[in-house]
Every structure is written in structure tokens, then in C-alpha cells.
Design a protein around this nucleic acid. Structure first.
Lengths: 125, 125
DNA sequence: ATATGTACCATTACTACAGATGGTACATAT
DNA sequence: ATATGTACCATCTGTAGTAATGGTACATAT
């Protein structure tokens, strides 16, 4: 299992991490249950901040790609393969695309959409 | 017809303009067909930039509250009253609220929503 | 000439957020 | 002791958008 971080790549580090781990799971390079390097260990190896790795791990856990077991470490999720093709971000894009397209069709300005969106995201609900 | 701009109000000037004109139409202070002060004139009176007034007028025209007739000036839209209760911004808020709520319910991070939203708004489609 | 709406060009100040970094601390286990 | 994930605190840089300002110009009319 090799993870390579490309700093010249505009893609955020935590995203590169997620993608590579996800790909490794899909390609059977990381079978279900396989222990992953610890957050601190991986951060040290890749020379990135541990919070950055923690962020990637946290999102991967939310997507059911990996499992965190506290002091026991992190492992590939038992059903990782079936979940790693469920692209939540793609679904998010589709949802928003429809919504924005509808608004634009009604003549709502992009600026107005942005402002309304910003207000909604600020009011935590 | 009096329009007052409050600089201390965090509400943008062009928004204050829109609201007051809209309210005046709803309250019959500005009957359909009434000529509005010209963009430059109003900008001069209120001591704001003409582009700011133009922006308000443009949005009001999109909402069918007023009509611009080029060199002839701007007038209250013939069907202004029936349109001035159709709150496009409110409708926009409702659309986005639903969309965001759905995404959040699925566990999508606010940060992810923002990033996806930003990408979509940049790619002009 | 003068005035209308409109369409470009541009700049400035302000705000907000992402991404990443660093430090500290906790409970839990070996 | 050492290591695990995790949760706070914080700072910094870069980017991006809004709001508003200003200037110039155009076709169209009185």
C-alpha cells in the first residue's frame, strides 16, 4: 500500500488521501478488515499534519470505507467494497445541479443564489 | 414617494431600494404605470452611485415590478401589484433549504456542500 | 444639447471560507 | 511508558465573492 501526496496538485491533501485509499479498497489492495496505518504514523510518513489525515479518515469512516476503533486503530470497513462505489460527493453534485438549474431557469441571479445559499449555510439548521 | 437609505443598516443599498419600492407598490403609493425617477436622478438624490440604483431597477424589472422603456424612463409595471407578492428570493430560499436539508440528512458535511456548490456556480451552465 | 436605460471597463473594502498547520488534552488500551 | 482515535483551542495563507464606487460609451429620443 503506497500513498503519494502531490503538493503541486491543486487537489487538497485530504482529498488525495481519500481517493487513494478508496481506490486501493476497490482494487482489492486493501481487503476488508485490513488495519490501516495510524493517523499519526501516516501523517509522519507523508510529512503532513495529523489533523489532515484525521480529516480524511473521518470522512472515509462516514462513507463506510473504513472503521475507527479508538485505541485499537483504524481498519478497512467489513463492507467497504460495497460502499466505496457509493459516491456521496457525486450525489451531492447532482442534487445541487438540479436545484441551481431550476433557480436559474426562473431568472434568479447567480449572485442572489449565492447570497441565499450563504445565509442558509450560516443559520445552522 | 420617499426613499430613505440607512447606511448604518447592514442591508445592502440596492436591497433597501428594492424593498422600499416594492412596499410602495404594494401599499398603492405607486400605482401601476407611475413613472419612477430616473436612475441618475434617484442616485443623485440619495447620494449613491447610479450603478447601485441601476442594479435595483434591473432586479425589480426582472421581478415584473417595474418596466424600463429606454430613453422614456422607468415605470411601475402594469401588473406590478400581482407580481410584488411573488417573492422570488423567498422561493429561492425554500428551494435551497430543501436541498441543503436533504444533503445534511445524508451526512454530507457543510464544507462539502459549500465546495460542491462553489464548483457548480463557477462552471457556467 | 440634454436625458433615458444600458453595457462595458475598472478598482476598492469587506467578508467568509477552505485548507493546512500546530498545540494540548482526554479516555482507553497494550 | 507508549500508542490509539478524538476533541478542543488557535493561527495563517490564499481564494473568491459581494457591495459599491467611478469612468466611458452607445442608441434613442425630446
Amino acid at each position: 500500500m503506497e500513498i503519494v501526496i502531490n503538493i503541486d496538485d491543486p487537489t487538497p491533501v485530504f482529498t488525495q488521501l481519500m481517493e487513494q485509499i478508496k481506490t486501493a479498497v476497490a482494487n482489492n489492495h486493501l481487503p476488508e478488515g485490513t488495519p490501516l496505518p495510524s493517523i499519526r504514523q501516516l501523517a509522519n510518513d507523508l510529512e503532513v499534519n495529523s489533523k489532515t489525515v484525521a480529516k480524511a479518515y473521518k470522512l472515509l469512516e462516514r462513507d463506510n470505507i473504513i472503521q475507527s476503533r479508538g485505541y485499537r486503530g483504524s481498519f478497512v470497513h467489513p463492507d467497504a467494497k460495497s460502499h466505496c462505489h457509493i459516491d456521496l460527493s457525486q450525489w451531492t453534485t447532482e442534487m445541487l445541479t438540479d436545484c441551481i438549474a431550476t433557480l436559474r431557469a426562473k431568472g434568479v441571479t447567480d449572485s442572489e443564489i449565492r447570497v441565499a445559499f450563504g445565509s442558509l449555510m450560516n443559520s445552522k439548521f
